[in-house]
């Protein structure tokens, strides 16, 4: 077992024959470890085998492009909605990361007709995807997929609302409808 444990900077294998996975980086034509952990080679059908360094215990949790996140909307203006990233995948973060949903990333179609106030309100819980690492302050998030959007929102009366279409949610108490970009949550 101990011979498989590697340290940051250790050359693992040639980058020409293997592809670099989690916990590794490529330098000078070699796949090198960037974590302390156990080296693991997984064979993938047809392609180059994948080399990873697997770490036990806690791992740093940082949003990566393409990751599904759960965020809480904090501010909304006509161009963008600010949100705090609370969960990455299924794991909660210790301290929220800042995210931004820009108006062009709210939905996939009819992008120019999106109205920010009819899509999100402060306090909404949103499922989103990390688009890119964004600027130095916040991550850019996107809800431009059916399964992404508002999953939990409270009405003016303070009741959690029920989704009635992909654009509307209804308050169970007052029966008033409010506009949101609703996520299609699959059971």
């Amino acid at each position: 077992m101990s011979d498989q444990v590697v340290c940051p900077g250790d050359r693992l294998v040639s980058a020409a024959e293997y592809s670099a996975g989690h916990g590794t980086h490529v330098r000078d034509g070699y796949v090198c470890a960037s974590l302390v952990g156990v080296k693991q080679v997984t064979k993938t059908g047809g392609q180059k085998p994948l080399v990873e360094v697997i770490r036990r215990g806690s791992q740093p949790l940082v949003p990566k492009p393409g990751a599904a996140v759960t965020a809480k909307v904090t501010k909304v203006n006509p161009r963008l909605a600010s949100a705090e990233i609370l969960c990455i995948g299924t794991k909660p973060v210790d301290q929220p990361f800042n995210g931004i949903i820009r108006v062009q990333d709210v939905r996939a179609t009819e992008v120019d007709k999106v109205e920010m106030y009819s899509s999100f309100r402060p306090g909404d819980i949103v499922r989103a995807e990390v688009l890119s690492l964004g600027d130095s302050r916040s991550y850019y998030l996107s809800t431009a997929k059916n399964e992404l959007g508002v999953v939990y929102a409270k009405s003016v009366a303070g009741q959690p609302m029920v989704a009635i279409s992909w654009q509307e949610m209804q308050c169970p108490q007052t029966k008033a409808t409010e506009k949101r970009k609703v996520a299609k949550v699959t059971a």
Binding site: M1, S2, V5, V6, C7, H22, V36, G37, V38, I54, R55, R56, G57, Q59, A67, I88, G89, T90, K91
Partner: peptide, 23 residues
């Protein structure tokens, strides 16, 4: 670093499943 990792590996349960460690 290596000996602390080896120690960690020997004290805790065998390898975490792929699903657990991915995210």
């Amino acid at each position: 670093l290596i000996s602390s990792t080896v120690q960690q590996l020997s004290t805790s349960a065998p390898h975490a499943s792929a699903a657990q460690r991915r995210d």
